[in-house]
Design a protein around this nucleic acid. Structure first.
Length: 293
DNA sequence: CACTTGACCTGTCCGC
DNA sequence: TGCGGACAGGTCAAGT
């Protein structure tokens, strides 16, 4: 379930932990998780220094001194967890020990990067949907995944007018399906789509064409607000997600609808329902979010 | 082209 | 206790 806030949290953690380190070795156990040939690994990964970490949508880009980059998509159960060389100093002074990280590598570990100082970066992925790919840096933007990606919702230059325009060609979609479509807006997934739609009082099944401009403007404001709050919370941990330091996110403690089915709506007291929209479990309040098909 | 559905995987939970 | 099936939900391929 890593969406924009979770991936952003991982990115920030990696920026603190692995920039400047030299990759000494890589091991992997599942080809689809790391589909690279040995020549590229030898020539452009081993011995390369980590220059910086960036994020685009739900993907992480680890730029290397070799002119290549490691692009990582966590999909649903992926983790990128850093473990320092000394087992009693995994997180730095004063950080609580986390048994999950202490046990790494485990059965979900797909790729292990070992740095020259003996610290490690584990790419864990229980369900094997995620991937880590070694790509020439200048070709990253040409990967199909990036080609289809819409704008970053938190960019300073991204405004209400831009947001409206992104939905112009999706008039017949249900609003939730359009929000989840990464070519509309980058980085929105199931959790924050539900949260933003509740905030804007829009029924997830509403067709885009039925929404007024002021409703989309409210949705724009709510979405940005939710994403920023989630980043401040270190993201959402349902089952698998952890930051680069192995810590869980706390956003679900303040979530308004996600995973709150059966509990009272914070606005009106009506029971939150769980329905299926666009093939996804969807949490909503049928009183606050009136259906307009 | 816009839009929807199924496949990719594994672990967990629920009913029998 | 075991076992089948539904479910979790990000993207891509294939379908309408």
């Amino acid at each position: 379930m890593p969406e924009l806030p979770e991936v952003e949290t991982v990115k920030r953690g990696l920026n603190k932990r692995i920039v400047g380190k030299v990759i000494a070795d890589v091991t992997y156990d599942w080809p689809k998780s790391f589909p690279n040939n040995k020549a590229d690994i030898t020539n452009f990964l081993i011995g390369a220094r980590v220059k910086g970490i960036s994020r685009r949508g739900k993907a992480i880009i680890i730029t290397l001194s070799s002119g290549y980059a490691l692009v990582v998509h966590l999909k649903m159960t992926g983790q990128l967890v850093y473990v320092s060389a000394k087992s009693n100093d995994r997180f730095g002074a004063g950080h609580p020990t986390d048994s999950l990280v202490a046990a790494l590598p485990d059965t979900s570990t797909r790729v292990t990067l070992r740095f020259s100082d003996e610290s490690k970066l584990y790419f864990n992925d229980q369900r094997k949907f995620g991937w880590m790919r070694l790509v020439p840096r200048q070709l990253v933007d040409e990967l199909p995944f990036f080609q289809l990606l819409g704008p970053e919702p938190l960019d300073d230059t991204f405004n209400e007018s831009d947001f409206q325009k992104r939905f112009a060609r999706r008039q017949n979609s249900m609003i939730k399906a359009a929000l989840l479509n990464q070519s509309t807006i980058a980085g929105v997934g199931n959790i924050y789509a539900d949260e933003a739609l509740w905030g804007a009082k829009i029924h997830p099944r509403s067709r885009v064409r039925m929404l007024h401009a002021n409703e989309l403007n409210t949705l724009f404001t709510e979405l940005r607000d939710i994403l920023q709050k989630a980043i401040a919370s270190g993201g959402s941990t349902d089952k698998n997600y952890v930051s680069a330091d192995g810590k869980k996110g706390s956003y679900l403690q303040i979530a308004r609808v996600f995973r709150r089915d059966g509990q009272p709506c914070y606005r009106c007291g009506n029971t939150i329902e769980k329905i299926r929209v666009a093939g996804r479990g969807t949490h909503m309040c049928s009183v606050c979010q009136k259906e307009r098909p």
